[in-house]
Design a protein around this nucleic acid. Sequence first.
DNA 1: ACAAAAGTGTTGAGAGTACACCCATGC
DNA 2: GCATGGGTGTACTCTCAACACTTTTGT
Lengths: 234, 234
Amino acid sequence: MPTLQTSSNGHLPKHAIAVDVVLLTIQGGTLKVLLVKREQAPYRGTWALPGGVVGADESVDDAALRELHEETNIGNIYLEQLYTFGDPTRDPRGRVITVAYYALVNWQQFQLKARQRVTEASWFAVKRLPTLAFDHRRIVDYALERLRYKINYTTVGFQLLPREFTLTELQSSYEVILGQRLDKRNFRRKMLQLGILKDTAHVRAIGRQRPARLYTFTEPKVVKLQEKGIIVPF
Amino acid sequence: MPTLQTSSNGHLPKHAIAVDVVLLTIQGGTLKVLLVKREQAPYRGTWALPGGVVGADESVDDAALRELHEETNIGNIYLEQLYTFGDPTRDPRGRVITVAYYALVNWQQFQLKARQRVTEASWFAVKRLPTLAFDHRRIVDYALERLRYKINYTTVGFQLLPREFTLTELQSSYEVILGQRLDKRNFRRKMLQLGILKDTAHVRAIGRQRPARLYTFTEPKVVKLQEKGIIVPF
DNA sequence: ACAAAAGTGTTGAGAGTACACCCATGC
DNA sequence: GCATGGGTGTACTCTCAACACTTTTGT
């Protein structure tokens, strides 16, 4: 085959491209993913990731955003491309290449706006997923791996929290994602040392306990916290 | 728009999908990338990444492998998907979504086999790239970022070396990729501590100096060396 | 006063950093 | 014997890990 096939335009092989979004949130101390029930074959009645095909003149990122907005009605969601799954056998109807994304939302904000759905949609704990359509299980697993990884050296984790949050809530979100308990003192020291939290003067009293201080995140966007590695620690 | 458009098959919007490969090697103490000269419009005569369209029944990964084998004639090359660029304006002829990959080869092995090319192809130092077609400059930059990143916590860097190598060669490849000098004693201590190098009994004498010990890499595949992060250091 | 979560410090161990000289060989 | 790259050790600093009690509030 010639090397520069892209230049012989006109009758190129063309492919259907879909986007699938792994939308994650934390609710009740559990990491959850939004699934929709498929209404058509194949996998009719099976739970699947929200997604859809990329339009003719739409960017792939825009298609993912569009799907997200259809499901959530909230804007300004953290969305990151995960991986492109291009095996021709992954869809039994024929070839559909999918570009997978993951997104993080704060549960409270989401609760307020989600409404008027047609398709049945529901949150599932990532530890107890039903059988998923296509290779969507693999995509969810990949999203979780990426999230667990990135939470270690970036501030993506903050996307799951409300604007003001307590240090206990922050720690809890890390514990839920990482699946392990963390030491309270060490966690707080590290977080405060990073210089990315601002102590609002506010407190939040939930039960009959001592109220907790509320913090906000000082950085406007998701931020890389370290570059440490084996070879070049800084 | 309905959520599950993928299920209404038949007249889906279809797209041309290309793969582009950032093939990297180290030659003469410099990190280089393979570019091919375009023979057709657009960007005729401009240097571009090797790549081509994905065939109708071909997996995207296979298309990248195929392109790689066309350019190199060597098998068993490290190849990793980078990112999918899906902006409809990136190709002036119309929409072409590209899935970018990067690959690493050892220069000596490559030298032996590359032959019988039609298209003009050449290695360029990544520090002195010509103007590239499309958004290929951005793709190269992204590949370099990923490589610099991964070299810190995986063994991808070994893919650039011959089977047997000296510690000085290994250090040099890290220095070339990272763009900084490293301390010889600290580098050697760290590498040997990792337990992934085997001291062959062989030595290599190049000039009139003391010959250097040759090592091999004990792991069969690219390996993750750490999971360290801010929150969970182990 | 008590239940419940918030908040707070120290110490020991291990890893990272900086740094300079001797060694083995070919010519 | 000398030029060239190969090869080695130590002291200081800093970060990480482990660990338990006091504080504040509502009832």
